[in-house]
Amino acid sequence: MSHTAHIPSHRKPRRSASKLAVRAGVAGGVLSTLAMAGTASASPAAEPATETTLEMPVLNMDLGSQVSSAVIKAADNTRAQALVGELNAQEETARTGAAAEAKLAKADAQAKADAEKKAADEANRQADADRANRGEGRTQLASAKGSTGGSSTGSSASDDDSGVRAPATGSAAAIINFARNQVGKAYVLGGTGPSSFDCSGLVQAAFRQANISLPRMSQDQSSEGTSVSLSNLQPGDVLYWGSRGSAYHVAIYSGGGKFIGAQNSNTGIVERSLSYDPPTGAVRIL
Results as ranks from 00 to 15, higher is better:
89 A>V: 04
94 A>I: 03
40 A>C: 11
112 K>T: 12
101 E>Y: 12
35 A>D: 00
114 D>A: 09
118 K>N: 12
54 L>H: 14
118 K>M: 14
87 L>R: 07
41 S>E: 14
101 E>D: 15
58 V>M: 13
43 S>Y: 00
90 Q>R: 09
114 D>K: 03
123 A>K: 00
43 S>H: 04
121 D>E: 03
68 S>T: 11
101 E>C: 12
75 A>S: 08
100 A>D: 13
90 Q>D: 11
61 M>I: 11
127 A>D: 05
45 A>N: 10
91 E>F: 06
79 R>H: 07
57 P>V: 00
37 A>W: 01
107 A>K: 03
84 V>M: 11
34 L>E: 00
107 A>D: 14
129 A>S: 12
115 A>S: 07
34 L>V: 02
67 V>S: 03
64 G>E: 13
96 T>S: 12
126 Q>T: 14
48 P>C: 04
51 E>C: 08
65 S>V: 07
61 M>R: 10
62 D>F: 01
90 Q>I: 08
129 A>T: 04
95 R>K: 08
56 M>E: 14
30 V>A: 01
79 R>Y: 07
59 L>E: 13
94 A>K: 03
41 S>A: 15
65 S>K: 09
75 A>I: 05
130 D>K: 08
72 I>N: 11
107 A>L: 07
86 E>D: 15
69 S>V: 05
86 E>P: 04
58 V>T: 11
105 A>Q: 10
98 A>T: 04
89 A>S: 09
43 S>N: 14
56 M>S: 12
59 L>V: 11
36 M>Q: 03
74 A>P: 01
55 E>H: 14
127 A>N: 05
89 A>M: 04
114 D>S: 07
80 A>C: 06
98 A>L: 06
54 L>Y: 14
